[in-house]
Write a protein that binds this DNA or RNA. Structure first.
Length: 429
RNA sequence: GUGGUCGUAGCUCAGCUGGUAGAGCCCUGGAUUGUGAUUCCAGUUGUCGUGGGUUCGAGCCCCAUCGAUCACCCCA
């Protein structure tokens, strides 16, 4: 590090070309998958009014209380925040432009999110999510569709160590009632609570149920159950989601303690979890947020969505060496000699006109070192133009992968010949 | 935000109870001055994360700081 003071901000990473190749492949795969379900792309700004997140995510959540990159615009005093998640922005955009005026919307977005957390594997201050939102849909078929489409993506990506957990949070009224009962219950046994539980009692009592402290288990087991507060229609909704999952053979585990850390969720919540990423095992999570649209100022409208953590998914992918990325290059053009040098640039353009991906050797270097670079480039072929070829309008075509001899070919036939051989290699698989 | 471990060449790492640094890979050149991936030969590469302190002397010990990593917390 030549200048240690000019480093990337902590928790914000450079994605270098070798890794970016995997990102591109992943993004292509995801786009195809979203297309196949009719979800359409939407792009929102990275910066939003701070009030948006306070209202959507909840004032007393960890995200809003201590993880947001918030600042005052020094030019006009606006209170702004780098988005910590995408749903709030997406809802804001949909309302601002009246997209729900006469049709529900299936939308997706992707990009960086920002949370000021202590970085560790699978948790960064700038991280990337792919968010999928269905707005204006009230019935349980859309919840099920979103879970099913996740399952398809995992198959497409070749991921195996991923399991589904689901739960229902009921409606806002039921949640509120449950929360109050929970606080009353735990408050009754205040002297039995450990430090964590005491701290959470009024801030996030649901989280007490997650405690791993063995001494708390008895108390937790007897705590009021959310299920007892649920209205019949919420139960039916959940049953409907489960029955579609069964119909499609998607295995799930009901986790009554599955609680999303954002206030806007209600009814169905789900989480896809892996055991191979240590503590950051959640690679995808979401659920229904029927109240949010109204809360942000729209007409009441039901919705359901989820988000995937791109970094987490990619580190899962890297753990399984199944992904073989195609060579990004067809031709490395080697040339030497005054006439050949002048000719090579023209030839490279001709090859590109024919749809080939070509790197023209630039700078010095003998044939030997140019050939080394050709090999290292990953190109399928080296095209060599020296004085001999230049004088006869020819070029030498040399396959760099697999079998095949080099041959001299007229330059005008070169592109066609290469395309033919690439197609043949492709057909062989 | 709390705690544990760790920072040595571009990468992966070695470096003994303190005596001013090494290997492999990579890269460059050569082994018939027009041919890569194998082999052989030669060569380059470092403010030992940063800043202080202890010492005759610090990569090694102490403090601080930055960063990485693991866990807690939280979450994608």
């Amino acid at each position: 590090m030549s200048n240690p003071s000019l480093q990337a901000v902590r928790g914000m990473n450079d994605i270098l070309p070798d890794e970016a190749q995997l990102w591109l492949w992943f993004e292509d795969t995801v786009r195809e998958w979203l297309d196949s379900y009719g979800y359409r792309n939407i792009r929102m700004p990275l910066v939003e009014p701070t009030a948006l997140f306070k209202r959507a995510i909840g004032e007393v959540t960890d995200i809003v209380e201590k993880e947001m990159y918030s600042f005052e615009d020094s030019l006009n005093g606006d209170h702004l925040t780098l988005r910590p998640e995408g749903t709030a922005s997406c809802v804001r955009a949909v309302l601002q432009h009246n997209l729900l005026y006469n049709a529900p919307q299936r939308l997706y977005y992707s990009g960086p999110m920002f949370r000021h957390e202590r970085p560790q594997k699978g948790r960064y201050r700038q991280f990337h999510q792919i968010g999928v939102e269905a707005m204006g849909f009230a019935s349980p078929d859309i919840d099920a569709e979103q879970i099913l489409m996740c399952a398809r993506l995992w198959r497409k990506l070749g991921l195996t160590d991923v399991t589904l957990q689901i739960n229902t949070l009921g409606d806002a009224a039921a949640r509120k009632q449950h929360r109050e009962k929970l606080i009353a219950y735990f408050a009754q046994y205040e002297d039995l609570l450990d430090e964590d539980a005491t701290r959470r009692l009024h801030s996030n009592p649901l989280r007490i149920l997650d405690s791993k402290n063995p001494q708390m288990q008895e108390l937790i087991a007897a705590a009021p159950k959310l299920m007892d507060e649920l209205h019949e229609d919420a139960i039916l909704h959940f049953e409907a989601v489960k029955s579609v999952l069964k119909q499609h053979g998607v295995a799930y585990e009901i986790n009554p303690r599955l609680v999303r850390g954002l206030d806007y969720y209600n009814r169905t919540v789900f989480e896809w979890v892996t055991t191979s990423l240590g503590a950051q095992g959640t690679i995808c999570a979401g659920g229904r947020y029927d109240g949010l649209i109204e809360q942000i100022g729209g007409k009441p409208s039901a919705a359901c969505g989820f988000a995937m953590g791109v970094e987490r998914l990619l580190s899962l992918l890297q753990a399984e060496p199944k992904v073989v990325l195609a060579s990004p290059l067809d031709v490395y053009l080697v040339h030497q000699g005054e006439l050949a040098d002048a000719m090579a640039g023209v030839l490279a353009e001709q090859l590109r006109d024919a749809g080939l991906r070509v790197v023209l050797h630039c700078g010095d270097g003998g044939f030997k070192s140019q050939m080394k670079k050709a090999d290292a480039s990953g190109a399928q072929f080296a095209v060599i133009v020296g004085d001999d070829e230049a004088q006869t309008g020819q070029a030498t075509l040399k396959p760099l992968r697999g079998e095949g001899e080099q041959a001299r070919i007229a330059q005008i036939e070169l592109a066609q010949m290469i395309n033919k051989q690439i197609n043949r290699a492709f057909q062989r698989g």
